[in-house]
Amino acid sequence: MKPEVNIILVPKLISTAHKLRLGHEADGSHDFGECLDLINGILPELQDSGALMALFQNMLAAQERHDWLALADCLEYELPLLLQQSAISQG
């Protein structure tokens, strides 16, 4: 994975999670869309895209049921870990 994407993406994921936890759902949802756009750009480079797609399904389901805390947990903990594991397996 490109280092600059990791430098931009992971902080954006964490910032989005914090917005959702603080009850700023509109801003968090907007930023979530931006995060998905960034991830879409690096999908071909990721090793375990199946795990990523499963996590995306969980995140979108959480968003649909307005479970902002579950979405925030995925964005702050699960997704960055998955992205880092993909970067390690490529290196």
Rank of each mutant, 00 (worst) to 15 (best):
L69D: 15
N6F: 08
M59F: 05
I42W: 08
L79G: 01
L22I: 12
A51N: 05
A72I: 01
D27C: 01
E25G: 07
F56G: 03
S15Y: 04
K19I: 00
E4R: 11
D37R: 13
D73S: 12
L82D: 00
L20E: 01
S89I: 10
P11T: 10
Q90L: 14
S86A: 11
L43C: 14
L79N: 08
V10W: 00
C35W: 01
R21I: 11
L71C: 06
D48P: 06
I14N: 07
A70C: 00
V5Y: 04
Q57I: 03
I14Q: 13
S15W: 02
A62N: 08
I7H: 11
E25Y: 06
D48R: 06
I42D: 00
L9Y: 01
S86Q: 08
L13V: 12
L55Y: 07
P80I: 10
M53L: 14
Q84M: 15
N40G: 13
A54L: 12
R65E: 09
I8Q: 15
F32Y: 12
Y77A: 15
D37C: 13
F56A: 02
P3A: 08
E4T: 09
L83P: 00
R21G: 06
A54S: 15
H30Q: 15
L83C: 07
H30T: 14
D48Y: 04
E64K: 15
R65P: 00
M1V: 10
S49H: 08
K19M: 12
R65Y: 04
A61L: 05
M1G: 08
Q90W: 10
H18N: 03
D73V: 08
E25C: 12
H18K: 08
Q47K: 15
A72Y: 02
I14H: 10
Y77S: 13
D67E: 01
D67W: 00
L20M: 11
A54Q: 13
H30Y: 15
K19T: 02
G28H: 07
W68S: 03
L81V: 11
G28Y: 04
L52P: 01
N40Q: 15
S15A: 11
L79T: 03
I88T: 11
V5W: 00
F32K: 09
R21A: 03
F56I: 00
E4I: 03
G28D: 04
P44D: 12
G28F: 02
L36P: 07
A62M: 12
F32I: 06
M59I: 04
A87M: 02
M53R: 05
S29Y: 03
S29A: 13
N40I: 08
V10H: 00
A17N: 01
L55G: 02
I8T: 14
G28R: 01
S89T: 08
G91I: 14
I14C: 10
Q90K: 13
N40S: 14
L9S: 10
S29I: 03
N58E: 04
